[in-house]
Design a protein around this nucleic acid. Structure first.
Lengths: 208, 208
DNA sequence: GTCTATAACGAGATAGAC
DNA sequence: GTCTATCTCGTTATAGAC
């Protein structure tokens, strides 16, 4: 099937991947988000899809390329979600709430952030994956920084340190909260932590 | 050598491990903290120590047992450090500063927290390691909760949510900050995040 | 594009000599 | 306690038929 399948499908909005490639990425992503990049093999993917390992190599010649594609797609999808939040033209606190909602959705799906997982495996990753990972974090930090600056200017956020420092703090806190929460099988732990991230930013109007 | 070596050395304070076992654990710990439990092998340890893989199996028959021992020792050492902080009879903010100092020391040693690493690999760990991991986190949360309650009572900390929730938040934030900072090879990122953990707790005496 | 078959290697682990 | 030698299995990856 797929007579015209090249690198891109011709149906609009289907993205840069071929149908079987997408299926492979879907399975690999789920595995990477639960077991880590070093925690799954081509055999796992093949078994899930009911194909052979060899056919996977046709679409992704090496595991390193599969891993790089995994991050690239995750980055693109996440970036699109951030743009969607921006286009809703919300106020900063609601933007931030929706941002943590993205991660919450991941946890409710019994996963953790792909890049939080990969950060732990960083030292063992192929160089292209290491670079792609940092780009993902960079994107998150840039977006958060903008929201934080906007929120502080408009008086809804209160923090004194540089906004990009705060952004890094928030990103790390959410990633870490996911990993620990998952160890306890308790996504409620993540939501509690996410709540504190938001509340610590809230401008207090009364002294205590 | 080591004619009387059983499970415990007879020299005082040497802990529950034999000398070669300690050397193995030291190497394995360094590897696990940088590459993860799934990221090192008996061959790596053997090469570093200049022995054969077979001799490692004499001390730790299976990698699962080695992993469990790794967490157990880490737990004990970390717990002793927490007790040492308590015995210095400091005020809560200084206790907390010294707590983050423990993690900072790990980062300066080009590592991340063993249990932060293992949390990412949680789904692939043998059951005994999973249980030991949760015990480590439990210990941290209990200690932090006590310090937080003490600090709030004495007026040096300001937070409204339950103290154990705050403790979990702090633990996750520090673990996540380490993992992301390490991806960038920038331990300064961790220190900045650690600073915010402390400052967000500080009772503000003036309104803004 | 997917298959069978297999190569090439590294992993954890064991037996038995010393 | 440490060694040599070996086993078994799982891993990534390739060749070549269909």
């Amino acid at each position: 099937m797929a007579e015209f399948s090249k690198k891109k499908s011709n149906s609009p909005g289907s993205g840069p991947f071929t149908e079987p490639a997408k299926a492979i990425l879907d399975v690999a992503e789920q595995l990477a988000q639960t077991r880590g990049y070093n925690g799954f093999s081509y055999a796992d993917i093949a078994a899930t899809l009911g194909v052979t390992k060899a056919s996977l190599h046709y679409h992704f010649p090496s595991k390193a390329e599969l891993g790089r594609a995994l991050i690239a797609r995750y980055h693109a999808v996440f970036g699109a979600a951030l743009e969607a939040i921006d286009q809703r033209a919300l106020k900063p606190p609601e933007k931030l709430r929706q941002y943590v909602g993205l991660y919450d959705a991941v946890m409710r799906n019994d996963r953790v952030c792909l890049c939080g997982m990969l950060a732990a495996e960083y030292a063992t990753l192929p160089a292209p994956m290491q670079e792609a990972l940092k780009l993902f974090f960079d994107m998150n930090e840039r977006w958060l920084t903008t929201v934080l600056l906007d929120g502080r200017r408009s008086g809804s956020f209160l923090f004194t340190e540089p906004a990009d420092e705060r952004a890094r703090f928030i990103l790390g806190a959410l990633e870490g909260a996911m990993l620990v929460a998952r160890s306890f099988g308790d996504s409620g732990r993540f939501r509690a932590a996410a709540k504190h991230v938001l509340e610590d930013l809230r401008a207090r109007r009364k002294a205590r």
